[in-house]
Every structure is written in structure tokens, then in C-alpha cells.
């Protein structure tokens, strides 16, 4: 759905490709140096553990892509039944559970204390919606490129409203890059019809397609929806960029903590 809404992009790409009038170049921009921020990336799923929480820091734009891990944090995850586990740092900035088991429908609280600051986040793991199969539709891509296929994950959205999904897929081992998310604002309680696709990653007959479906909570949906809006902002201009709204409370931090279900399906692409 995301791709379809990005009409501006399509028009612009069409237009500029017709008249050969667009050009790109790398430029130097003098960017301010922001204060260093803590970045938290934590998840717990319905798959067997261990589950990991990564803590790192932001770096300035002009530095290399080395993001320092944050050590010596006290990291705990607590479920709504009162089970608590402190995570062990296995690598610089990476913390891991040892016995905790993620269960659908449970609510999990992440607490972190580090460098004198406290962070906390709550996420409820939704009940899993079954990914029944994959269907492949014919698709003629804009701007030629010939006919290819799109993948429709077949699942039936539950009657109750408020289901949010995130998808990943790979074609012959190559993974997609963008953020694919959807919810049941449209077609609540129906069999899914919406295909997932990536302009950069074509699916053709005979390809091996693996789709991973995650049932995520609303905060995580909003987080990735915002990211997808910003990253869709190439030519034509997307939304004004911002830090996505997240579920971390207490001291300010970037990132998220997500409790979600995971289910994968592999299928060979056929009509």
C-alpha cells in the first residue's frame, strides 16, 4: 500500500525519465553536532529465546558508521505475570536473556539503567494471526521492466479491530530493504488481498520466496510507519523528517522495544 500512495514519486520518476532532466550528486553539508543519544533496540518474540536487547549511541553524521555499544547497563525484562529476568551482556552493548519464554498475549516491560539514566518500555505481544500461504499475482511494473509477480501473504485478519502487521521477504536469499507494514484500518476481518513488494526486488516464476510475518503492537506500527514515510521521501519530497515516536519512557532515548510474533513461509513463485 505504501508504494501505491507514493504517487508523487511515480509521476516525478516518469516525468524526469522522459525528459532526462534530473541529476544527482554528492554534496558537502555542514551539519551541527547533536548531543549523543542512547539507542535501544529490544525485542521478545514467540519463538524460543534467547532474546536480545542492543544498546548503542548515536554518532555525528560526518563520522564513519561505527556505532559504539553501551556496556555495564542493568537490563531487565518483566512480564505481566511477575516473572523478571536480568539480561547478561554477551558482547559490547548486546544483552541477552537466558530463560525467559515469550508468550502471545503477554505484556512485557523492559527496564534499563545505564550511565545514571533510566529507560523503560512496555509492549504487548499480540495473538498470532496465521500466515496460511503465499499467493502470487501478475504485476506489470511502472516504467516498463516487464511483467513480474507480487506476493500476497494469505491470512485472515481477526474480526476484532486493531491488528498491525510487519512483513519481510527474501527472493532467492536476497532480502528486501524497505519497511513493509500494514494494519486493518481497511478490510478489517477480511482475507488479506494486499500484495507486498519492493521496487528493487523483483519476484519471477520459479523464485524461492520467503515471507516473514510479524504481528506487532500499535506503538511499533506507528514507529515503523513514520520511518517508512520519511524514507520514502526521495525525489518529490516525503514528509518532513522527524524521529519516529517510540514507546520508550523515562529518560529520552531513540529506538524501540517490541514484543511480537514471528511466522515464516517459504514458497516457490508460481501463478
Amino acid at each position: 500500500m505504501k508504494k501505491i500512495i507514493s504517487i508523487k514519486l511515480i509521476i516525478l520518476v516518469l516525468f524526469t525519465s522522459f525528459f532526462l532532466v534530473s541529476c544527482e550528486k554528492e554534496i558537502e553539508i555542514d551539519l551541527n553536532e547533536g548531543d549523543t543519544q542512547i539507542v535501544i533496540e529490544g525485542e521478545i518474540t514467540n519463538e524460543p529465546g534467547p532474546y536480545k536487547v542492543k544498546i548503542s549511541k548515536t554518532v555525528n553524521f560526518n563520522k564513519g558508521n561505527n556505532f559504539p555499544g553501551v556496556s555495564n547497563a542493568i537490563v531487565t525484562i518483566t512480564d505481566n505475570l511477575g516473572n523478571t529476568e536480568q539480561l547478561i551482556e554477551i558482547e559490547n552493548g548486546i544483552y541477552q536473556t537466558s530463560s525467559l519464554v515469550g508468550i502471545q498475549g503477554n505484556t512485557y516491560t523492559l527496564n534499563i539503567s545505564v550511565e545514571g539514566k533510566n529507560y523503560s518500555a512496555i509492549s504487548k505481544m499480540p495473538m498470532q494471526v496465521n500466515l496460511d500461504s503465499l499467493r502470487f499475482n501478475e504485476f506489470s511494473a511502472p516504467l516498463g521492466g516487464g511483467n513480474s509477480l507480487t506476493t500476497v501473504p494469505m491470512f485472515k485478519d481477526p474480526v476484532e479491530k486493531g491488528n498491525n502487521y510487519r512483513f519481510f521477504f527474501s527472493v532467492n536469499g536476497e532480502k528486501n530493504t524497505g519497511y513493509i507494514i500494514t494494519n486493518d484500518n481497511v478490510n478489517n476481518g477480511q482475507e488479506n488481498q494486499r500484495p507486498i513488494f519492493d521496487q528493487e526486488l523483483e519476484v519471477n516464476m520459479g523464485d524461492t520466496v520467503i515471507v516473514e510475518m510479524r504481528c506487532i503492537d500499535l506503538n511499533i506500527y506507528n514507529y515503523f510507519y513514520t520511518l517508512s514515510q520519511i524514507s520514502g521521501g526521495g525525489p518529490g519530497g516525503g514528509a518532513t523528517p522527524s524521529n519516529p515516536p517510540n514507546n520508550i519512557t523515562g529518560d529520552k532515548a531513540l529506538g524501540y522495544f517490541s514484543a511480537h510474533t514471528i511466522q515464516k513461509r517459504l514458497q516457490i513463485a508460481t501463478k
Binding site: 551541527n32 533496540e41 549511541k57 548515536t58 554518532v59 553524521f61 530493504t177 522527524s242
Partner: peptide
């Protein structure tokens, strides 16, 4: 609005914004 920093999430580089 340009970034004032960057960070890594899910092994992708994301940007950090301070002011509109």
C-alpha cells in the same frame, strides 16, 4: 530539516533529528 546525527537500528543506518 537535516540530521544532527545517525544511529544503527536493525543493521540499517537511521538519522537523528533535533530541530524542525
Amino acid at each position: 530539516t537535516f540530521p544532527s546525527g545517525k544511529y544503527s537500528l536493525e543493521d540499517k543506518t537511521l538519522f537523528y533529528y533535533t530541530e524542525r
